[in-house]
């Protein structure tokens, strides 16, 4: 039996088509995430515009750490997002999103008796909704908020020039850090204050 050149070409064409269909199917398989990263910014904007925390030991002559601020211009056009597949062949992934938003002048971070300009908010968030989680104990979102004082450029947490043209790895000497796991009430948990490079645990007390 002889194989004609046309049959060979047809076979190659069909093989290629099947391969491309497979690749394409692999790429779009699974739940479809929200395509607009601004969705995350809308959630981030709901962070409380003021809150009070308490420290176990006095910092700058007081036990109270609080902030009040109005968000201003975002530094990114839209939040940066990246999807992490749990396995190369898995459809499930969790999504990381990062955003930076300046606070308007007049926003304050109060540490004891010290008032500092609250300059920006940096958010490192995780969207678990597409991770295939089955346990109701895993939240849909985890937001890690850094409310940064004294940095009007919002460059951090790691100095991008380190170690090439700076010896200072971290950029922020003072910030309030907390996590939010429920965007409906935005209650801060796991809070800590970094004040001039020293870190202290603080806890939120509902007003």
């Amino acid at each position: 039996m002889t194989i004609s050149p046309i049959s060979v070409l047809l076979f190659l064409f069909l093989s290629l088509s099947l391969f491309l269909c497979h690749v394409s199917a692999f790429a779009i398989d699974g739940p479809v995430p929200p395509s607009n990263p601004l969705y995350y910014r809308e959630l981030i904007k709901k962070v409380r515009d003021q809150a009070t925390f308490f420290a176990d030991i006095p910092i700058e002559g007081g036990f109270i750490v609080s902030y009040q601020g109005i968000q201003g211009r975002p530094l990114l056009e839209q939040p940066s997002i990246s999807d992490f597949y749990l396995h190369p062949t898995s459809d499930h992934f969790y999504r990381i999103f990062i955003d930076r938003i300046l606070y308007q002048d007049g926003s304050l971070l109060k540490v004891g008796s010290m008032e500092l300009p609250l300059t920006c908010i940096f958010i490192y968030g995780q969207d678990n909704r597409f991770s295939g989680k089955t346990s109701p104990l895993i939240p849909d979102f985890i937001f890690k908020f850094y409310l940064v004082a004294n940095d009007f450029s919002c460059t951090g947490p790691i100095n991008p020039a380190w170690p090439i043209n700076t010896v200072r790895k971290e950029n922020w000497d003072t910030y309030l850090y907390f996590e939010v796991r429920d965007p409906t009430i935005m209650l801060p948990v796991e809070a800590k204050i970094r004040y001039r490079w020293n870190e202290f645990a603080v806890f939120k007390k509902e007003e």
């Binding site: 940066s80 990381i96 930076r100 300046l102 919002c154 790691i158 020039a161 043209n165 700076t166």
Partner: peptide, 26 residues
């Protein structure tokens, strides 16, 4: 792999900010 990817994600956000006090690259 996760660390490298996260670092790239951080760097990608920094490139878009145009607010850094760090002039990078020099």
């Amino acid at each position: 792999v996760i660390i490298v990817t996260l670092s790239l994600l951080f760097l990608s956000t920094l490139g878009k900010t145009f607010a850094a006090v760090v002039w990078y690259p020099l």
